[in-house]
Every structure is written in C-alpha cells, then in structure tokens.
C-alpha cells in the first residue's frame, strides 16, 4: 500500500508544488498576520512593529466587555443556527438516505445546487424575500386581503384591519435564517453519508423486537449516526461562528458578529493589528473545537471525520 511514498523522486514531484503553494499563499500570509497581531496602530492607521510597540495589548483589548459581548452574541447565533440546521437537516438527510436509489442522486443534487450560485447573489435574494416590500410580505398581504374580501362578501366587518408589513429584515432573526440557509448543506451531507451507510438490519431488528418507528429513531438511528451528527454540528458551528457576509447584509443593529468586527478593523477602523489578534482568537477557538472532536473520536476508536 502507498508504494509511491517510497519512491522519493515521484513523491517530491507530486508533493512539492502543492506544498509550495500552501506555504507561499497560506502559511506565509498567516504568519504575517500573526506578527501584526502583536503590533500597534499608528495615528493614521499605519502598523507600528517597533520593539517598543510590540505587546499583547490587542489580545487584552479583545477581552474588553464590548468585544466579549460580540463574541457571546456570535456564539449564541451560531448555536441557534446549528440547532435549527440539525432539526431541519436530520429529517432531510434521512429522507434522502431512505429514498429509492433512483431519486437519491437527484435529491442530493438539489441539496448541493445552491453552491452553483454566488453567495453574495443568494444573500441579496434573501433581502428580496424578507424586506418590507418583499415576497413574504406580499404573500401575507394577499392572504390578509383575501380574508378581508371574503368577510366583506359575507357582509361581515373587516376583522383584520389594514395590513401591517412584518419587519423581517435587518435583525438577528434574518441573520439566523441566512446562516441556516447557507450552512444547511454542510449539515445534510455528513448526516447523509452516515445514514446511507447505516445497516438497515439494525432498524429492522429494532422493529422486530417490538419498538415502534419513533422509538427506533431515537434508540437506534440517532445513536448510530452520532459520528455524522458531530461532524455536521462541528462544520456548521465553525462556519456559522465565522460568518461575515450574512450578518453584514441581513443583520441590523442587534446582530454584529465577530466576522463583522474583524472586517471593520481591516476596513473602516484601519486597525489591522487588532483585527489580526481577533482573527487569531477565532482560529484558536476553531482549533480547540477540532482537537476536542479528534480526542473524542480517538477514544471511541473512530477517525476524526
């Protein structure tokens, strides 16, 4: 197995180009950002990297209350979005995994289909759906007028009054809707992969032993798909935590996330050192989550993913 590894020449020919690519375009820039995170912001927004300026000040600053609040809000939004993704994703993945093989690939394709459109365009589409004069409100208005019209035909007074459009956009709920929409495939795909491999005779054995469908779902199907659930939760949570575009476009005053804070530092605030420190804190958090997952998987004798 893996004989090509023994052939040093073939190995280096295959290995060097991607390694060089990763070092030049990923590791080096990341190292530069890491160095910046210890610097200071000059009065005009320049980066000061003198020995006298180097400090942990940026990291200390990120622990100020105002920033911790943003972190807490980001975690809360990510947790809620991940929970909704499981609630929607598990039945969806089960539906696909248990569908007849003829439809399975089509259904999977439908899950992946949104990736073919740019995220920016898809997010703008949500604005068109949720805004005051958007599709949701149009539909509600039509329903409202129909009911009122129906009552008028029956000679009854209009019970519902004038239509007030719902404020669906530029708040935390819009952000959660957007994040759920963007990340749902990352929940469905690992769940599907696990459920599709699940030996059907476990489910049949449970039924045979007298358990109903719901009991079988919670006592057999869910426990046996825990590897897929944890992978899906992890992917969704990490991606949700780092969201930037969705809260930027769909969010309002109550829904700034870490991603927006970082973008501000590199953008309008011109405080790259502080932005760099925040970026690294987010990355450390992600690494810790992945490490915990790997440890748990190792103890259970499975692989990390």
């Amino acid at each position: 197995m893996q004989n090509w590894r023994r052939n040093k020449f073939a190995f280096s020919v295959l290995f060097l180009p991607p390694a060089a690519w990763l070092v030049i375009f990923f590791t080096l820039p990341l190292a530069i950002v890491w160095v910046y995170s210890f610097g200071a912001r000059g009065p005009l927004g320049e980066i000061i990297l003198d020995w006298s300026a180097v400090s942990l000040g940026n990291y200390a600053r990120s622990l100020e209350w105002i920033n911790l609040e943003i972190v807490a809000k980001s975690i809360w939004i990510a947790v809620v979005a991940t929970a909704i993704c499981i609630g929607l994703g598990f039945p969806l993945a089960m539906g696909i995994a248990f569908a007849s093989p003829r439809y399975r690939n089509i259904l999977l394709l439908l899950v992946i289909l949104p990736f073919w459109t740019n995220l920016l365009i898809r997010t703008y589409a949500w604005i068109a759906v949720l805004r005051e004069r958007g599709h949701v409100n149009f539909a509600l208005e039509w329903l409202h007028d129909t009911i009122n019209g129906g009552l008028a035909v029956l000679g009854l007074p209009a019970l519902l009054g004038a239509f007030e459009p719902l404020q669906l956009l530029y708040n935390q709920n819009a952000v959660i809707i957007g994040i759920v929409y963007v990340n749902l495939p990352f929940m469905v795909l690992p769940l599907y992969a696990t459920l599709e491999k699940l030996d059907r005779s476990y489910l049949e054995a449970s039924l045979d032993l007298g358990a109903g469908q719901w009991r079988t779902l919670f006592s057999v199907t869910v426990p046996l798909s825990l590897p897929g659930i944890s992978t899906g939760v992890l992917l969704t949570f990490i991606l949700a935590l780092g969201s930037f575009l969705t809260p930027d476009l769909l969010g309002g005053p109550d829904s700034i996330m870490i991603g927006n804070l970082i973008a501000q530092q590199f953008g309008s605030a011109r405080d790259w050192p502080f932005g760099a420190a925040l970026s690294f804190l987010l990355m450390y958090a992600t690494f810790i989550i992945l490490w915990v997952k790997a440890m748990v998987a190792k103890r259970e004798g499975g692989s990390a993913f």
Binding site: D199, S201, Y202, E204, A205, S206, L207, D208, L209, G210, A211, G212, V220, L224
Partner: peptide, 17 residues
Amino acid sequence: DPNRRPVNMVFQSYAVF
C-alpha cells in the same frame, strides 16, 4: 407491522446493536 407480530428474527448479520 413487524413490531406487532408474534415472531422474532435472527438476522444474517446478527444486527446486534
């Protein structure tokens, strides 16, 4: 339904949870 029949089965793969 299978869960209401007076029979039980030993599966080829055993299907031990």
